[in-house]
Design a binder for these strands. Structure first.
Length: 424
DNA sequence: TCTGGGGTCCTAGGACCC
DNA sequence: TCTGGGGTCCTAGGACCC
């Protein structure tokens, strides 16, 4: 059996842990630059607000109903997520972290401890609530896809626990699930399936494999097997290194300046390289993309990307930065108001997997020297805070600032911002 | 008149998720 | 005026090879 533990309105719930006065009110968390809604409390959803919606559309309604909009505080959310996952790992042997707010638990055919599934799931919820103050929903089923559906049904019905452990009950439940509600079926695929006469998850499980394959790809066919109760998406138990590492930002203020754009690209390259080294990889290809705003009809539009191949895979920030700046030079056009830049590292391989350059014997010691340098830089930045050491080309951080009108303290990761409890 | 039949690799773009 | 930032996988089509 698989259990999915999914936090309810995760970012909003993290904020509520430290500010209980946010309970019971419409609360939303905003993306960087306070642009879009990225998390909505149940009360906010009841007002019709949706994740992805631009904030300026939602602000009025929210204020009218005594709600609150908070700027994103990712230091807090990633730390709370790590705590949640550690708690789950204490409960079961195998935990697959699927995203910042959900994880699959491998739980065997019977509930641990010889209890009923309901008892076990309830105790798990209570432990997370007690230890972390976070509300979670638990879905249990024979496959990941079904556990996800069970969890979503439970959220919709507010039962907090969804048990799809009995095959007859599962078959019945699937009759009520429209195809677009299935995990992995988006609006496009749903339309295609409906026009072929497939409207519910149950119909999908009864359709022949070759019909599904004709209509969609192998991914969706595997999904249908999952719905039939045969685990097909088995993602394994190891943490798989990423295949691409991307860092992109929308600027707080659009820029036309080469120097500012270069500063942004260098900064994102450094950030991506840091993550590259954290997973012990090197990159062979680097892509830089820039574009102007998507929603301005009074400004000319320009969007372009350039790919650079490195002669030798690297995780050395100065090397990657030089390549990124070269790429930027090829696509930058003066006069456009750029709002966003992106740096993407691909063709990743294990660090040191490539043999040293036979024709340059000094290269090996140089490679080691650079690796040590990066180690020291990463260590200092981890110890004393991000950007303690940067390359000079990253500037003094004009391009690092966000518009954040209402960010909460980083309660769990910065000494100066710890919450203080007073005995009354 | 009549012009093969396999492969591989790479990239862009589509679709999806949180 | 005001619209995140990450990821994954798959497919089609082009370039190239013999």
């Amino acid at each position: 059996m698989k259990a999915l533990v999914d936090a309810d309105s995760f970012y909003v719930s993290c904020e509520r842990v430290f500010r209980p006065s946010l309970m019971g009110r419409p609360v939303v968390v905003l993306s960087n630059n306070d642009g879009c809604l990225i998390s909505c409390s149940r009360e906010a959803k009841a007002l019709g607000l949706r994740v992805g919606q631009p904030y300026f559309e939602a602000a009025g309604l929210l204020a009218l109903h005594g709600g609150e909009a908070l700027s994103a505080n990712f230091s807090l959310y990633t730390d709370m997520s790590a705590r949640l996952m550690r708690t789950l790992e204490e409960e079961v042997q195998q935990v697959l972290v699927y995203s910042i707010d959900e994880a699959f638990l491998e739980v065997g055919p019977r509930p641990p401890g010889g209890e009923e599934w309901a008892t076990w799931a309830c105790a798990l919820r209570q432990r997370v609530r007690r230890d972390l103050g976070l509300p979670v929903t638990v879905g249990v089923a024979p496959s990941h896809g079904l556990a996800k559906l069970a969890c979503e049904e439970a959220k919709k019905k507010r039962t907090e626990i969804g048990l799809w452990t009995d095959s007859r009950a599962v078959a019945e439940a699937l009759e009520q699930v429209p195809v677009e509600a299935i995990w992995g079926i988006g609006p496009r695929l749903a339309r295609r399936l409906r026009s072929a006469g497939l409207f519910t998850a149950a119909q999908l499980t009864r359709a022949p494999d070759d019909q599904i394959r004709r209509l969609t790809s192998v991914t969706e066919l595997q999904l249908v097997w999952e719905l039939r109760g045969h685990p097909a998406l088995d993602p394994g138990d190891v943490r798989i290194p990423r295949k691409t590492i991307l860092c992109s930002r929308t600027f707080a203020v659009p820029t036309r300046q080469w120097e500012e754009l270069r500063e942004a690209v260098a900064t994102y390259t450094a950030r991506a390289a840091e993550r590259l080294r954290a997973q012990h990889s090197e990159a062979s290809t680097l892509r830089v993309a820039i574009r102007t705003g998507l929603f301005r009809s009074d400004e000319p539009f320009h969007a372009e990307a350039a790919l650079v191949r490195l002669p030798i895979p690297s995780a050395h920030t100065p090397t990657l930065t030089a390549a990124a700046v070269r790429a930027l030079q090829a696509i930058y056009r003066p006069g456009f108001a750029y709002t966003r830049a992106e740096v993407c590292l691909t063709d990743l391989s294990d660090a040191g997997a490539h043999p040293a350059d036979l024709f340059a014997p000094e290269a090996e010691s140089e490679r080691k020297r650079r690796a040590r340098l990066m180690q020291v830089v990463d260590h200092l930045n981890a110890e004393y805070g991000r950007d303690t050491i940067t390359t000079a080309i990253c500037g003094r951080g004009v391009m690092r600032r966000f518009r954040q009108a209402n960010r909460s303290p980083r309660y769990t990761t910065v000494w100066d911002e710890l919450p203080i409890a007073r005995a009354s």
